[in-house]
Simulated scan of single mutants.
Amino acid sequence: MTKIKSIFIVINLLLLIGYFNWSIYAKERILSEGKLVLIELAPVDPRSLMQGDYMHLNYKENTFLEKVKIPKRGFCLLKIDSNGIGHRIALIKDMRPLGNDEVVVKYFFDGNEYWPSIHIGAESYFFQEGKGKKYEAAKYGGLKIDRNGNSILVGLYNKDLKLIL
C-alpha cells in the first residue's frame, strides 16, 4: 500500500512541476511575442499597511458611466492610437478578426450593478519600500498582450510615455 502511495505522490509532484513550468513558459511567450499597449490609469492610493508599498491599478478603460448588461467574461476590444495607447471600442464575447491597430484583452466583470466596471490586466504594482514618490507620476500601465487576449503588466509609464524605472 505504501508503494502505491509513493507512486501517486511522485506522479502528482511531476504533474505540479509540469504545470508550473508550462505557466512560466506561457508568461515568457507573452513577454517576448506580445504587443505593448499603454492603458491610461485612474488615480488610486499607493499604500497598503499589510502588503507594503504598492499601487492599486484602476485603468480608465475599466469604468462604465452608463448601466449596461455586461457578460461575466469576454474580451475588451482596444484601438491603439499612434502613441501606442489603447482605447476601448467595445466588449465582445468571442474573438474576431482584428485590424492592425486593434487588440483584445481578456476581462471579467465583477457583477456590481451600481458601479459597473470590468477588470483587465494586472490590478496591483508592487515596488520597493520608500520608492512610491516616483510612481505617483504614473499615467499609463504598460501591458504586453498576446493574440489570445492574455496580458502581463510590464511597467508603469509617465505622461511623456517613458517607462518609470
Rank of each mutant, 00 (worst) to 15 (best):
R96G: 07
P97N: 10
V105S: 03
P97V: 08
N112Y: 09
S117H: 14
I89Y: 00
G86S: 05
N100D: 11
N112A: 06
G99F: 10
R88Q: 05
V105Y: 02
K93W: 08
I85M: 08
H87Y: 13
Y107I: 03
G86C: 05
G121T: 11
P116M: 02
G111N: 04
I85D: 09
I120C: 10
D94P: 08
M95Q: 15
E113W: 09
K93L: 11
R96P: 10
G121L: 09
S117R: 15
A90R: 07
V105I: 15
G121D: 05
Y107E: 01
K106F: 06
W115F: 14
E113Q: 14
I89E: 09
I92D: 02
V104I: 05
H119W: 12
L98V: 00
Y107P: 01
P116I: 00
G86P: 07
G111T: 05
K106A: 09
D110I: 04
L91D: 05
N100T: 10
I89V: 11
K106H: 11
Y107S: 00
N100Y: 06
F109S: 03
I118Y: 08
A90T: 03
F108A: 01
E113H: 12
G99W: 09
A122K: 13
N100C: 06
I120A: 11
M95A: 10
D101Q: 01
E123Y: 13
V105L: 06
F109H: 07
E102G: 03
H119S: 14
P97E: 12
F109D: 05
F108R: 07
I85N: 04
R96E: 14
S117D: 13
K93M: 10
E113K: 15
I85Q: 06
K106M: 12
I89S: 03
D110H: 04
Y107R: 01
L98S: 03
F108M: 09
I92A: 02
S117C: 11
W115R: 14
A90Q: 09
G121E: 10
V104Y: 00
V105D: 00
